[in-house]
Design a protein around this nucleic acid. Sequence first.
DNA 1: CTGAAAGCGCTTACAG
DNA 2: CTGAAAGCGCTTACAG
Lengths: 334, 334
Amino acid sequence: MPLTLEDIARKCGVSRSTVSRVINGEANVSPDTRRRVMDMIQQINFQPNLAARGLAAGKTRVLGVVIPMGVTAIFTDPFFPLLIQGVSITCNSCDYSVMLWLDDPEYERRTVRQILYNGLVDGVIVASNLMDDPIVVALGEGKLPYVMIGRSPVNNQVNFVDVDNFGGARKAVKHLIGLGRRRIAHISGPAKMIAGMDRYQGYLSGLYEAGIFPDPTLVVEGDFTDLGGYLAVQRLLPNHPDAIFTASDAMANGALRALIEAGVRVPQDISLVGFDDIPFASRTIPPLTTVRQPIQRIGSLAAESLIQIIGHPENQPLHVILPTELIVRGSSGE
Amino acid sequence: MPLTLEDIARKCGVSRSTVSRVINGEANVSPDTRRRVMDMIQQINFQPNLAARGLAAGKTRVLGVVIPMGVTAIFTDPFFPLLIQGVSITCNSCDYSVMLWLDDPEYERRTVRQILYNGLVDGVIVASNLMDDPIVVALGEGKLPYVMIGRSPVNNQVNFVDVDNFGGARKAVKHLIGLGRRRIAHISGPAKMIAGMDRYQGYLSGLYEAGIFPDPTLVVEGDFTDLGGYLAVQRLLPNHPDAIFTASDAMANGALRALIEAGVRVPQDISLVGFDDIPFASRTIPPLTTVRQPIQRIGSLAAESLIQIIGHPENQPLHVILPTELIVRGSSGE
DNA sequence: CTGAAAGCGCTTACAG
DNA sequence: CTGAAAGCGCTTACAG
């Protein structure tokens, strides 16, 4: 049996209240007592029972992370892994734990309630960036602190951490225009995903600024997957683009494969630019020009923000938008 | 404030013991009472506090998953994501939750204790398959149920779920031999990882069976990463292999790139076979022959096994080895 | 079949 | 600065 506060108290000849105070770093303990208790804790390798603490204190120091499994490409894309890694690193250093829910649509109703009211987490990070996710609605009705990964287009009261998808896409397009490209195609994300639509808007904005009127036949809706990019290129080629900007690197990779198979030279005939800068982007042939987003940092910031909000709810709503960076490699040209 | 058992009890005119029994599906409740309570729970959307339950029952219905962050390529490879997905699916359907620890070596000592004794999890799945992981030692000394992903070479008392790495590698080599290859090189996993060494043994066994004495200059230690495969090929080429079997698809992909750059034709000049069958394997040019391991299923089985063991500790040690399958594509030949 | 009561291991006013 | 006591929301013998 693991030891309890009571055991430590007895061994030190103090009350369990005092031990609790020492463990929680409260001020009003005499230096001498504090040291004695600390030493004992160290020696015994004491670990307080977190379930009990959670129950008594009303705070568990556990953060939930909710990731929708419905999303395409969920785990072939390193987005979620990196995001989780970022969350985890912050939680480790802040003495929080993380609880993970991969949200099967089938279990969705159950999940929402289970997360909101089960008393296991102090707050939750939600990585579903669908336009109209029911979980977001449910969270809005509850009182559990939460932060979204990705902004909400419908409700500006929700906390979120996002990247500048719009600006990143615009930069990509301006880069292509600077290379002399004019018939710039776009393979977008799914229409229901906010990040995809923000990138699409950035694409349009880049064109407008250069005085180019967007050609609708040069835009194809993709799904963020490799295969989606591959198929989109086949629909795009007859319309003679001289550049393609894809809303993800996975799609860029599929696009690249389709271009190679069609005998199109990249970047001579068609320039290609992706979005994400996943590790693989630097290893395609030619290496991929892309818009880097700091995924791990998004996760870390989301965790930091959530911990912040749990402690100071008055700071809501909290909106963080991280900058993106254009990484120029061989696929776009010289 | 979320409602409590007590609230439900009051509304139904029964004791909180009875409500508890209904919620936990115990037999000794009259059908009528049961229905009344059930209806109320439904209507109120009641969710019991899991921290309280955990404390009272000594069981939290939470499984921990520990993944070492030290491992190379941790999150560019879809292994861990798929594993977690498998665990998560089983947990969802068994009404368990999952707690995730990405184990930064720096925090390792803390983590072990924290996981073992914090009273938050009923058991833990450990995906560290290093030869001598300290966490495994610590778990061996504690009494928390756990199952390893990957067998332990030192202690046959530990529970594990693994794939037949040895047999899979042997199949790959025999396939190459059947194709007429004789100078079959191997790019292995890191020497400290069990799965890597098991595949290496399988490679040797495949050669021996065909009466081929292994040429040590045809074996290079890799690290499971794309870059590792790329670099290994450069060391291998001077020794004139006619086939390369890599211990992972990521390495096969790096190897393929190095071969292309060196002007080597795959599979005409050199046959290439990987291991894993990650989604990307079917999309290389040429598509990759590889040994498929059912990663998601490993995760599911690990969770099932752990839940089993928590309920029936007498069934230990539990050893599960899943079969692998050779997937023949273009990179090995006709 | 049901309820009153003790207890899980903590935290937190309250009193001193 | 410290301790006794109540309480967090459940489960679980025990008695009836």
